[in-house]
Amino acid sequence: MAGKSSVAAIYFAILGIVTTGFGIANILVTAGASEFAYGILEISGDLFRGGWGGAIVLFAGLFYLSGARNFEEIHQFSKIVMGSILIWIMAGCDIFAMITESIPGGEDGPWFNTLDGFIGTYAPPYAPAVLLLPFSLVVLYYINKRNQEM
């Protein structure tokens, strides 16, 4: 049991460090008022998604970091869950924005987007929260496990 929980602790500590890093990078990029893209990562430079959103990614990272220790205890665990919820909020908003952009044809175009254009909207690069999303879902496994133990 102890071994397993320490694996989880290490996992969430690393996730916390990465998330915090993304958050800080996001805020720095916004402060520099430019965009940043590398591989499949794209950091928005606008004040709303980059600045405000970046702060939330940073908060998520801090939640992970502060909850990683003594992970079995419910109050600590709730911080991990909250970190993931913040990531879900951010990623959910980004994905919802993609969906709403992908359907209309845009000015002067047809009413609806072409299939290529529609699919093209979902191609990388992605915002940090979207990249973190799959890793944050691990928390569901632990919630489930906890429910079964009870």
């Binding site: 709303f48 998604r49 405000w52 959103g53 702060a55 939330i56 908060f59 801090l62 939640f63 909250m82 913040l86 909020i89 951010m90 959910g92 908003c93 919802f96 924005a97």
Partner: peptide
């Protein structure tokens, strides 16, 4: 921080 995230989501959506 959570309230800030909730407001962000509200606004973004």
């Amino acid at each position: 921080p959570i309230a800030i995230a909730v407001m962000y989501a509200f606004w973004s959506i």
